[in-house]
Write a protein that binds this DNA or RNA. Sequence first.
DNA 1: CACCAAGTCATACTAAAGTACCAAAGCACT
DNA 2: AGTGCTTTGGTACTTTAGTATGACTTGGTG
Lengths: 136, 136
Amino acid sequence: MKKTILIFGMLILALLLLFQFSKYAVISGSLKVELIVAVIAIVFFFIGVFINKKSLKPNQTESAEINHNKIKDLEISSREYEVLLHISEGLSNKEIGEKLFLSESTIKTHVSNLFLKLNAKRRTQAVQIAKACKII
Amino acid sequence: MKKTILIFGMLILALLLLFQFSKYAVISGSLKVELIVAVIAIVFFFIGVFINKKSLKPNQTESAEINHNKIKDLEISSREYEVLLHISEGLSNKEIGEKLFLSESTIKTHVSNLFLKLNAKRRTQAVQIAKACKII
DNA sequence: CACCAAGTCATACTAAAGTACCAAAGCACT
DNA sequence: AGTGCTTTGGTACTTTAGTATGACTTGGTG
């Protein structure tokens, strides 16, 4: 956030300088009007491209970015989250247990708790909800 | 594609007009230099935003496109595909049956055939494989 | 017409998944 | 030292899911 403010501040400063310079140049007649207009056009064009890229980046990565706050909101513990990830990989409770060196009953407990927190009735539904919440 | 060319043609035309107008206005002194510079800056800024948006759109939708050829390769029938979509939504066999006005046993048959074709053992795994294949 | 693939449905069974309830160890915090 | 939370694990039970097999219908194709 601080970086953004700094960059925008610098941008505005540069623009003011450009503005003043163009006015001075026109009045003094040291430069052609076309050239100044062209420079301003190009500069603002790239500013437009730049700002748009900045504002679109979150949209692009949003689908792939994990919403950590949502996980906390749902009160999902770290162990439960691990289990959730393995569920989304298509593993069975037994397989998850073997991967995490836990018994199947422990996994079942975690899964049941996950369903309560995600408001799901099936593991497929849990995966769907988790993806909709951008948790996985 | 034709649309894009048309739009860009119009844009260039509009810019030339703006350019000529600004030159004329400055020479005749009917408008202040600041105003013209500001207008040009704003116009080019929005052009930058617009072009950037256009060029970024394909990148955004690329990841969501469905590979129809893959479905045919796997010999997945249309009914089976319907069932697959509902599985990915987190529905149970009974719920899918109710949605498609079919009995639960029919859904089970489709699901079993899907698992053979997708080489899956569980519905969660089937969803994961289908997503990896860009089928859903 | 005969044949085939797709779709439908049923029964019977096994294997997972999921629920409910309990219990205990470990930890951080006060 | 007590409290609350997570993590772990168990038993017992119900519900889905998944497999295997067979049967019937239908629309298109050789």
